[in-house]
Design a protein around this nucleic acid. Structure first.
Length: 421
RNA sequence: GGAGAUGUGGCAGAGUGGUUGAAUGCACCGGUUUCGAAAACCGGCAUACCGAAAGGUAUCGGAGGUUCGAAUCCUCCCAUCUCCGCCA
C-alpha cells in the first residue's frame, strides 16, 4: 500500500512505476475518487459536529419545549447523515479496491522488461563443473540413489508429491542446520513460523488479493502460506517497535505450499517445482530509510552468495526487470544456481525490499528520534529453499559412477560421509 | 464440541446513557531543587484523518443496531481465561 498523499503529490511517478511493472491501474480515477472521498468526509463530519454540539445543548437545556424542538431537528439531520454516510461507504469501497492495486514504485536501477527473460545478469560466480560423462539431471540422480520416491509421493500426496528418503532426507536436514548455524551466528533470530495463516497476513504481505489462485485455502477460511515471509512479517503486525530494536533480523523456517496454478506444464518432473517444500527465509525490518533498505538488501544477498560460494555451487545474480517484480517490491535480485543438466541457471533464491509497502498494510511502526511514529521498512531473501537447492547440489556434485560427492561444508552435518551412494 | 467469565490509553485499573477521549496509579518526557543523583514538587504525555490555523471528526476487541446523545443498552462476530469433553 502506498500513502494516498504520496500518490496525489507524485501521480506521474506512480503511473510510470506501474507501467514499468506492467500493472494496469487507473491513478486518475483513484485521485478523482479521493476528491469525492474528501468532500463527502467533510460533509459527514460537519454534520456530526453539529449533532454533537446540539446534543450537548440538549443535555443542559431546562426548557422542555425547546428541548423537544431540538431533538426533532436532530432527527432530521440524522437522516441526512445516514444518506451521506452511505454515499461515503460506496466511495470508500471503490477507493480501497484501487488502493490495493497500486504497485510500489520500482527503483531507478531496476531494468526495463516484461518477463524474467529480460532480467539482467549483475554478476556470476564459480567454475561450472566439467564432466567427462554426460551429466544426469537431478531426477535421474535421486532415482538411482533412492533419495526421493516420486511414485509413492504421487500415490500419497498427489501431483508433484514426493518423499525425501535416505541421504536425500538427511541432505535436507544438513542444509537446514548448516544455514541455520550461519545465520544465528550472524545474530539472526531463529523462528519456526506458522504456514497456516489468516487472510490478513497475506493481504498485509501483498500476496492477496492478486495471488488467490496460487494459494491453498482451508474450509475455515485460513490459507497455507507459500513462504515463511508471510507469518514472519505478520509477527509484529499492529505493533509499535522501539527504535533501538531495529533492524530486526529473522531466520524463519516453515513448510511452504504453492498451487503452481498455471504452471502445469513446467518442471513436471523432479523437485524443482513442487506443491510443498521447506524454506529458511531471511526476513528483516528496519528503519524507514531508503539507504538503510538498499544497504541491507545488498547484505542479505551477500549472505546467500557467501553460502553458495562455501557450497561451491556456481551461480549468478540477476536484477529482476520491472515486469518480473511483485506488487510491493521496489527491487529484486534472483540468485540462480547452475544446473548442469539444463545447461542454464535456475532460480534458487529471491531477494527483495519493499520500503514501507508491507508495513503500511500490516501496520508495523516505530518511533523515530523526534517521537514521531513511522512505518518500518521490510526486506526478505530466501536463505535455503529445500528442494531447489538440493537439486542444484546433486547435479553439480555428481560423479561418473552415479554417486554424489558431499560438499565439504556439509560433511559434518551428514555424519562425516564423503559420498552419497 | 459444551458451560461460564472477561476484553478500556505503554502497563495496571475506574467508569453502566449526557461537558468522559476517558478518573487514578505506574512507566515515560520536560522543569524546579541538587556539586551530581535519588526523593519531592510543577508541567506534559493515545492514535488516525480533514484543515494554513483556530478547530473539527473518528476510535474504549470488531461489525451492525437503538437513541437527539453510547465505553455504558441490544444483536452478531472475534480473541483470551476457567471448567468439562475429545485428542496428542
Amino acid at each position: 500500500m502506498l500513502d494516498i498523499k504520496f500518490i496525489r503529490e507524485n501521480k506521474e511517478i506512480v503511473k510510470e512505476g506501474a507501467k514499468k511493472k506492467f500493472i494496469e491501474v487507473d491513478i486518475e480515477k483513484l485521485i478523482a475518487l479521493d476528491d469525492e472521498r474528501l468532500k463527502q468526509l467533510k460533509e459527514v463530519e460537519d454534520l456530526r459536529g453539529e449533532v454533537n454540539k446540539v446534543s450537548n445543548d440538549i443535555s443542559r437545556n431546562q426548557d422542555s419545549a425547546h428541548k423537544m424542538q431540538l431533538i426533532e431537528e436532530m432527527r432530521a439531520v440524522k437522516e441526512d447523515i445516514k444518506e451521506k454516510e452511505e454515499k461515503l461507504r460506496k466511495i470508500m469501497e471503490e477507493w480501497q479496491k484501487i488502493m490495493l492495486q497500486v504497485p510500489n514504485i520500482p527503483d531507478i536501477s531496476v531494468p526495463n522488461g516484461k518477463s524474467d527473460e529480460e532480467n539482467l545478469e549483475v554478476r556470476a560466480w564459480g567454475e561450472r563443473p566439467v564432466f567427462n560423462f554426460t551429466p544426469k539431471d537431478h531426477v535421474a540422480i535421486v532415482e538411482n540413489l533412492d533419495l526421493v520416491d516420486f511414485e509413492r509421493g504421487t500415490k500419497v500426496s498427489g501431483f508433484r508429491g514426493y518423499f525425501m528418503k535416505n541421504d536425500g532426507a538427511l541432505l535436507f536436514f544438513a542444509l537446514w542446520q548448516y544455514f541455520l548455524d550461519y545465520f544465528v551466528n550472524k545474530g539472526y533470530i531463529p523462528m519456526i513460523v506458522p504456514s497456516l495463516v489468516r487472510k490478513e497476513t497475506l493481504m498485509g504481505t501483498g500476496y492477496l488479493p492478486q495471488g488467490e489462485d496460487d494459494l491453498y485455502k482451508t474450509q475455515d477460511g485460513e490459507y497455507f502460506a507459500g513462504t515463511a515471509e508471510v507469518a514472519a512479517m505478520s509477527y509484529y503486525s499492529g505493533e509499535i517497535l522501539p527504535k533501538d530494536s531495529l533492524p530486526k533480523k529473522f531466520i524463519a523456517f516453515s513448510p511452504c505450499f504453492r498451487r503452481e496454478a498455471g504452471s502445469h506444464g513446467k518442471d513436471v518432473k523432479g523437485i524443482i517445482r513442487v506443491h510443498e517444500f521447506f524454506k529458511l527465509e531471511q526476513v528483516l525490518l528496519c528503519e524507514a530509510s531508503h539507504e538503510e533498505s538498499a544497504k541491507l538488501h545488498e547484505e542479505i544477498t551477500n549472505h546467500v552468495e557467501h553460502l553458495m560460494q562455501e557450497l561451491k555451487i556456481p551461480y549468478r545474480v540477476v536484477a529482476n526487470c520491472g515486469g518480473d517484480l511483485g506488487l510491493g517490491q521496489v527491487k529484486k535480485y534472483d540468485i540462480e544456481a547452475w544446473m548442469p543438466s539444463q545447461n542454464k541457471y535456475r532460480e534458487t533464491h529471491s531477494s527483495s525490499y519493499f520500503h514501507d509497502f508491507q508495513a503500511r498494510r500490516l501496520n508495523i511502526k516505530y518511533k523515530d528520534r523526534e517521537g514521531k511514529s513511522k512505518y518500518v521498512h521490510s526486506l526478505n531473501n530466501t536463505a535455503c529453499a529445500t528442494s531447489r537447492l538440493p537439486a542444484a547440489i546433486l547435479e553439480n556434485y555428481q560423479q561418473a559412477d552415479g554417486t554424489v560427492k558431499i560438499p565439504e561444508v556439509l560433511k559434518k552435518y551428514m555424519g562425516g560421509k564423503e559420498f552419497i551412494k
